[in-house]
């Protein structure tokens, strides 16, 4: 915890302090590097496996460096159709549409509802909120059949719409945003109210801008969860042209007798992780340097 104060030197540091802080920094880097290796190991394994021959992917003990690097897998994967009429490009497109729409709806409706739960007092509010959280406690496998019946009656099975409506209105976003709204002092909204702003105005012009990091993390987490979901699309999306990336990749191994292509499966897995990594890197400053803090500095 000593390093907490490092970024905020209120007193001029003495030379001894400087030496100490450099030492701490070096140690910190060593620690972080070790942790990073540990964290990235499976990803590294995925990359290595994507460059191996299929039959060499699983071996005892693990082969960390392949005999030959088969980069051609990264070209091959775009042309393969493990299920006729459905290839990597289609899966990526579907997954992207789904993730973007779901994230947008989840963030919008979630943060809107969270305002109702955290800032407006009305009878039954807490019970309703608890009900929201409680539904998170029910494993999806237990109610997916009743849900499937409903969706089937509505004619939504085997459309991307089914996945959108299924994932966009979860309780997760409401809960998360409510927790962040509670960190914003009530006085802010009150002074805005005195200035004649409506509750909707307060949400749009005060709460949303002040919870930038929260919105960014909610968006990222929703995006990732939608991107990586397997069981939901598995049940609802039947036609290969509607497949998401996770469904598509499983096609490389779904016929255990003949068609297992672990090499391509991991090639696809590496490719499917990249967009998320890019979004994460690009979104960095929003997660950490929220507008709340930057506003305070000025």
């Amino acid at each position: 915890m000593t390093t907490l104060a490092l970024d905020r030197p209120f007193k001029r540091p003495t030379t001894r302090r400087k030496v100490r802080s450099t030492l701490v920094r070096v140690l910190l880097y060593i620690c972080l590097a070790a942790v990073a290796v540990f964290l990235l190991l499976p990803f590294f394994w995925m990359v290595v496996s994507s460059l191996k021959r299929d039959i060499d992917v699983f071996s005892v003990p693990i082969q960390w460096i392949p005999d030959a690097f088969r980069w051609e897998h990264y070209q091959e994967i775009w042309g393969v159709e493990p299920w006729k009429g459905s290839s990597m490009l289609d899966w990526l497109r579907n997954t992207l549409i789904l993730s973007v729409v779901v994230t947008f709806l989840q963030v919008l409706t979630g943060s809107f509802a969270a305002y109702g739960f955290s800032r407006i007092r009305f009878p039954g509010r807490d019970v309703l909120f608890l009900g929201y959280i409680a539904t998170i406690a029910v494993p999806w496998q237990a109610y997916m059949v009743p849900q499937f019946l409903l969706m089937s009656q509505a004619g939504l099975v085997d459309t991307l719409w089914s996945m959108i409506v299924l994932q966009a209105f979860g309780a997760f976003g409401v809960f998360l945003m409510k927790q962040f709204y509670e960190t914003i002092p009530e006085e802010l909204s009150e002074s805005a109210r005195i200035d004649g702003l409506s509750e909707y105005g307060i949400w749009a012009r005060i709460m949303v801008p002040l919870t930038g990091p929260a919105i960014a993390s909610l968006a990222l987490l929703t995006f990732v969860n939608t991107w990586n979901d397997y069981l939901g699309p598995r049940i609802y999306l039947r036609s290969p042209e509607n497949f998401t990336i996770q469904l598509g990749l499983q096609l490389f191994r779904s016929n255990p007798d003949v068609a297992t292509r672990w090499d391509l499966l991991f090639t696809g897995s590496v490719l499917s992780v990249l967009p998320i990594a890019i979004i994460f890197l690009a979104g960095q400053k929003y997660f950490v340097e929220g507008i709340a803090t930057s506003g305070m500095k000025s």
Partner: peptide, 12 residues
């Protein structure tokens, strides 16, 4: 490092 910390969650 932050990205690395998030990788286990997004990895297959």
């Amino acid at each position: 490092f932050r990205t690395a910390a998030f990788f286990p969650y997004i990895c297959s």
